[in-house]
């Protein structure tokens, strides 16, 4: 616990509000969320369907803009940035793993992975080195020249993860990365995410419905109706114990318990 206080804050969201709709028919999806994420944390976000998880992730990941509130990433106030700067910021500092992979069908695995650093200052030699490292960690070296439709779901998801990591981001956002995977592939991916988090110190924020998945995290944040309902820290607990704890909260929250079985 003590150690954590020394760590740098990578993400700080204050009083985040997001509303959809026009006047007269406004729906508040996020209702004032405060969230700190420290460097090197692996944060899980859970909550019933419609709680606003994806919305929160999108807002934090600069893909969407909050209606109110302030977001600091690495000390930069992203809620004030212009679109063009946000794009560059995303490309340089953030990584994304999408639920449905979102790989480009027209590109090979390697081309997909190298895409995020294709316009940056990364030299070709350096890019090649990074690719070899990441492909090795994620076990997709052999598939480098295949096209996405020649891959299994798990391989696609790992490709997607590799693409998220290639630019050495300060933070990775993942929206239900294991949603479409069988339990074995899911476990493999989560294990690699854990490794990347531990060994490379990459901060990860992951939305999931799956209690098993969130048991890999250091911390799980529960959302309900656009507000933070509670938070759980793993601390020194075993994964199994943490998993049980998560299940309990989920049971109280309702909605998603069926998924976790």
């Amino acid at each position: 616990m003590n150690e954590k206080n020394i760590k740098k804050t990578v993400l700080h969201a204050q009083n985040l509000t997001k509303s959809y709709g026009t006047r007269g028919n406004v729906q508040d999806v996020l209702k004032g969320i405060d969230l700190h994420v420290d460097e090197g944390e692996f944060v899980g976000i859970m909550g019933p369907s419609g709680a606003g998880k994806t919305t929160l992730l999108n807002v934090l990941a600069t893909i969407d803009r909050p209606t109110l509130g302030k977001i600091l990433i690495d000390g930069d106030d992203i809620s004030r940035m212009k679109d063009a700067r946000l794009s560059t910021f995303r490309r340089d500092k953030l990584g994304f793993i999408f639920q449905d992979y979102n790989l480009l069908d027209t590109l090979t695995v390697k081309e997909n992975i190298l895409l995020p650093i294709s316009l940056g200052k990364v030299k070709k030699l350096e890019a090649e080195k990074r690719f070899i490292d990441i492909a090795d960690i994620l076990g997709i070296t052999d598939h480098a020249n295949k096209y996405p439709h020649e891959l299994s779901g798990g391989q696609k998801q790992r490709t997607s993860a590799a693409r998220a990591l290639i630019n050495e981001p300060s933070m990775v956002f993942a929206d239900e990365p294991t949603g479409a995977l069988d339990s074995k592939s899911a476990a493999a991916l989560l294990k690699t995410m854990e490794d990347v988090n531990k060994e490379r110190g990459v901060t990860i924020m992951m939305v999931t419905h799956d209690a098993i998945a969130s048991s890999y995290c250091n911390r799980v944040v529960f959302l309900k109706d656009g507000m933070i309902y509670s938070e759980l820290y793993r601390g020194d607990k075993t994964r199994q114990a943490f998993f049980q704890e998560i299940l309990k909260v989920q049971g109280v929250l309702g909605g998603d318990s069926v998924d976790s079985i």
Binding site: D83, A84, S87, T88, D92, F98
Partner: peptide
Amino acid sequence: KQSYKTLRQLGFSEKE
């Protein structure tokens, strides 16, 4: 369209 969405999420601007 989906590719363009992904690319923009990855941080490529409209202009690029």
